[in-house]
Design a protein around this nucleic acid. Sequence first.
DNA 1: GAGATATGTCAATAAGGCTGACGTAACGGA
DNA 2: TCCGTTACGTCAGCCTTATTGACATATCTC
Lengths: 173, 173
Amino acid sequence: MSGALAEAPPAAATEPDAEPHFDVIELLFFAYRDFVSDPDRILTDYGFGRAHHRVLHFVNRQPGLTIAELLDILRITKQSLNRVLKELVEKGFIEQRPGVQDRRQRLLFPTAKGRSLALALSRPQDERIRRAINRCGEEDRQAALRFLFAMIDENDRDHVARLVYGAGERKGQ
Amino acid sequence: MSGALAEAPPAAATEPDAEPHFDVIELLFFAYRDFVSDPDRILTDYGFGRAHHRVLHFVNRQPGLTIAELLDILRITKQSLNRVLKELVEKGFIEQRPGVQDRRQRLLFPTAKGRSLALALSRPQDERIRRAINRCGEEDRQAALRFLFAMIDENDRDHVARLVYGAGERKGQ
DNA sequence: GAGATATGTCAATAAGGCTGACGTAACGGA
DNA sequence: TCCGTTACGTCAGCCTTATTGACATATCTC
């Protein structure tokens, strides 16, 4: 431990005992910590938590989303989802309609109230993003998007790409 | 809602009703989702959760960290911290030593076992980062670091910069 | 010596996640 | 038409991680 300047190993491609990328690991932690804390005050005003935010966000972004797709996005169990989803429906932020081709499905749609809250929740996050772009430039934002995308599980990248960039209404109504 | 191609507003600087940056919002969510799931399997082998991981990580990175500093990093209450910290100490992953200048402080140090586990936990995350760099290049990684850093609360950036880049042993021993 | 600080602890509670088991309705193919 | 599968809901119990509030102890600082 003492004696910090040990011999520098010859920089090989993917050397086995290279220092982990603690900078990425930690900046991701700190950025996410502050990022998700933005909407918290608004959420507590409605008696909601971060779980409600995530559900409302994706339903708002993908009107007509099915339960199964939402479970796949959030990576939680249907029991966990159901509790928060039920509250969002009861309080009038999300509507369920039976699927048209497959009536077993419950397609999820935001109500006007739901869209409004989703927008309000995204606002402080968007402001944070805009301040960051002001600091470090649009090129860094685009590079960050590429990097974050590459950090996603390979099997899931196509799915995420469709969700993020191919968004919009898809089913029902 | 219907009639998707409404008039495109003239692109002003910070126009008030511009579309929020859903791409950043969502890619941050998905990248973080997969990123934190990496160490989960290892953690359950030890009976630990993600809270233990966070504590062990920062103690390992900043040997001699105080409780107060750790609370400030994690943004949780001392009661929450204490439970997981106690378990890490009892199981021999972290050691406490009284501060030298201020004996009220309990300085936290990783044991050899703690350093080893911290390294094991960082490995899958580091591999994910390396794969991402292979995909999109070192320049994008550096841009992503700048962008993530700019996403942190302004008041906290100096502190985080010291933590991330000015790391190393600081106190005691 | 007195007040402030750093930390520990007890107790109660809440949010958000899990597993397991079971029920219902609808789809889809033999 | 029957039957297995799928999509979803629900009941019950449990765990982890967080919270608030109150109080205790040791130490620092003035």
